[in-house]
Amino acid sequence: MAVFDVAEIVDALRAVRHQWREAQKRSLDPGGRDLPAREALGEIVDTLKGVLFPMRLGPPDLRQETEDFYVGHALNAALHALWAQARLELQFKARHGRVDATEIDARADEAVRAFAGRLPAIRQLLDSDVLAAFHGDPAAGSVDEVLLCYPGVLALIHHRLAHELYKLGLPLLARIISEHAHAATGIDIHPGAQIGGRFFMDHGTGVVIGETAIIGERVRLYQAVTLGAKRFPRDADGHLEKGHPRHPIVEDDVVIYAGATILGRVTLGRGAVIGGNVWLTESVPPGAHITQATSRHEARPAGAPESPGSV
Rank of each mutant, 00 (worst) to 15 (best):
L131Q: 15
H18N: 13
L170A: 05
T66R: 15
P36H: 02
H239K: 14
V254F: 06
H203N: 12
I9D: 10
E211K: 09
L268R: 04
T212A: 03
A23E: 14
T212D: 04
V45N: 05
L35I: 13
A288Q: 03
D34S: 15
A229L: 08
I104Q: 00
W83T: 15
A111N: 00
S295L: 11
R38H: 10
A181I: 01
F53A: 05
G197A: 14
W83S: 12
R198Y: 06
Y257N: 10
R123M: 03
L165V: 00
R21V: 00
D61Y: 09
R218Q: 12
H80Q: 13
L88D: 01
H96R: 14
F69H: 13
V250D: 03
F69C: 09
L173V: 08
E39P: 00
Q223F: 06
G152D: 04
H244P: 01
H18G: 07
F92M: 04
T261F: 04
H239P: 01
V254L: 08
L41F: 02
E179P: 05
R98N: 12
R95L: 05
A84V: 08
G269M: 09
R87E: 14
I9E: 14
T212P: 15
W20G: 00
G287P: 09
R246P: 10
R113N: 08
R118G: 12
Q64T: 11
G259C: 09
V146F: 11
L126F: 04
A7D: 13
L48H: 02
L52S: 04
D188P: 12
A258N: 09
V284S: 00
L240Q: 10
A77C: 00
F69N: 10
V143A: 11
I176E: 06
A162T: 07
L57T: 01
Q91T: 14
I177A: 02
G206V: 10
E282Q: 12
R56C: 01
F115K: 05
D252G: 04
H159C: 10
V266K: 00
Y70C: 08
S283Q: 01
E103L: 15
A7Y: 04
G259R: 02
S27H: 12
L154Y: 13
G243V: 03
T261R: 12
D129S: 03
D127K: 02
A181P: 03
S295E: 10
E110Y: 07
G136H: 12
A293Y: 09
A94S: 14
A193C: 07
P308I: 03
L119I: 07
T185V: 07
D202G: 09
V208S: 13
H180I: 13
I290R: 06
P233D: 11
R17P: 00
R107G: 04
D68Y: 06
V130R: 01
G186V: 08
V16K: 12
V143H: 04
Q64F: 07
A272I: 01
R265Q: 10
A229V: 04
P171T: 07
I122Q: 11
